[in-house]
């Protein structure tokens, strides 16, 4: 019975979506805001990557919301998983191949992650994507050597500082008489590394926060005791 109801609901939703998409004015819709941003975005924010001007400029406040959601999810997961007993058994060390390749990959991932974060205002990428790569860089050695620990308190402090930095950059703009998150500093020359005002700084904060958060989450999941 329950399955039948779910099936009916899903079927109805699919039908509705089909009808709507057939009617919807795709690619020729009004796109008022989109067109506006395409026209003025580069000039107003000084970032060569237009996506960044939306993520950190026009909708930077939404990005703060997204960061908070990730933070909240990590926090709630911490509540659910609880703490590990000190005497609980750990997984065995991985073999030589895995250990050696994780040692090799670590610096590589670090460089790629940082590059993607720092060039977020110029090329596709940015704080979120780079942060995930950074998290992978720090989690890989833990997978290869389960006895090796990353300091949980350290990760938390790093995350708190990065989150606070994002907000404080926003608040600094208010001290200068602007609005919250208004870009400060000189826009610089379009396409050079030092351009886009404070937006790259915001992206660094995002990258560090996302990286620390995901690394913390993975470490926590790896730390959780199995039920068996």
């Amino acid at each position: 019975m329950r399955n039948l109801i779910s099936l009916l609901f899903v079927g109805g939703l699919v039908f509705l979506l089909l009808v709507l998409t057939l009617q919807a004015p795709f690619a020729e819709g009004p796109m008022l805001v989109g067109k506006g941003i395409l026209q003025q975005g580069t000039e107003e924010t000084g970032t060569a990557n237009l996506v960044t001007s939306v993520v950190l400029g026009y909708r930077g406040y939404d990005t703060l919301g997204e960061l908070s959601i990730l933070f909240t999810a990590a926090l709630a997961l911490g509540v659910v998983l609880g703490r590990r007993r000190p005497e609980a058994p750990r997984d065995l060390e991985a073999g030589l191949v895995l250990r050696a390749s994780s040692d090799l990959l670590f610096p590589l991932l670090l460089v790629v992650g940082l590059y993607i974060i720092l060039h977020g205002h110029l090329t596709p990428g940015g704080g979120f994507q780079g942060g995930v790569i950074l998290a992978a860089a720090f989690f890989l050695p833990v997978l290869a050597r389960p006895s090796q620990r990353i300091s949980h308190a350290g990760l938390m402090a790093l995350e708190a500082l990065a989150g606070a930095a994002f907000i404080i950059i926003g608040l600094l703009a208010m001290r200068h008489g602007g609005q919250f998150l208004q870009p400060l500093l000189d826009k610089g020359q379009l396409g050079s590394l030092l351009s886009g005002g404070t937006l790259p700084l915001l992206y660094i904060a995002v990258g560090v926060k996302v990286g620390a958060e995901l690394a913390g989450l993975l470490v926590r999941l790896g730390d959780a005791e199995a039920d068996s």
Partner: peptide, 18 residues
Amino acid sequence: AVALLVVLPLLAAFLTPS
């Protein structure tokens, strides 16, 4: 300063666990 109504609680939340 009305933005503070949203931002300050978030800032406090980020800092509280540490």
